[in-house]
């Protein structure tokens, strides 16, 4: 039965864990960039749209974990949204393939300003192991401007969350 379980869960300690605070230096740097770009304040919440630009799906597996009870990204005002038109942040994974570059550019154009682009994972940084392939354009920055890079193959959920929190901090400071 589900109800007794839900009742037990109400009485027990939350499963959600604390995450290390955002890196101060990263947040500062992002805030500088926000000011430099004279972007309007986005408020204390960010809507995130994930774009798979050609990943092996490893990064997506870890992004999925963010929505779960252990990392619960919504407690920070972060949410994953269904359309770039609702998004403040594009969270882009994968080396950008030739077959997806156009869709990524269109998604970026469909995202209202002000917006952030986060390149997630080693492939998104510069193509990763797929760098140099004729089927790959390169990293995310080769197609759309990137504000923040979260390295890893794939980066674990805690590190992804730290990166997104740095964006929230930057907003508060900017």
């Amino acid at each position: 039965m589900l109800w007794p379980r839900l009742a037990r869960n109400l009485a027990s300690r939350p499963l959600t864990e604390r995450v290390a605070a955002a890196d101060e230096a990263v947040a500062q740097a992002l805030a500088e960039r926000l000011r430099a770009a004279s972007r309007a304040r986005l408020g204390r919440s960010l809507a995130v749209r994930q774009v798979d630009a050609g990943s092996c799906n490893g990064c997506e597996l870890e992004i999925h974990m963010l929505s779960g009870v252990v990392y619960d990204l919504e407690r920070y005002g972060l949410s994953i949204v269904a359309s770039p038109r609702h998004a403040d942040v594009l969270l882009v994974t994968g080396p950008v393939t030739r077959n997806l570059a156009q869709a990524l550019a269109a998604t970026h154009a469909a995202t209202p300003d002000p917006k952030w682009v986060v390149a997630l994972g080693d492939c998104a940084a510069d193509g990763g192991v797929f760098k140099g392939s004729a089927a790959v354009v390169g990293g995310v920055a080769d197609v759309v401007p990137v504000d923040l890079l979260i390295p890893g193959c794939p980066p674990p959920p805690a590190r992804i969350l730290e990166g997104l929190l740095a964006l929230l901090e930057a907003e508060a400071e900017g």
Binding site: G54, G94, V129, S133, A135
Partner: peptide, 11 residues
């Protein structure tokens, strides 16, 4: 499909 074609085999 084909959107994530990375040329894996030729690499």
């Amino acid at each position: 499909l084909g959107f994530t074609h990375k040329g894996t085999l030729s690499l």
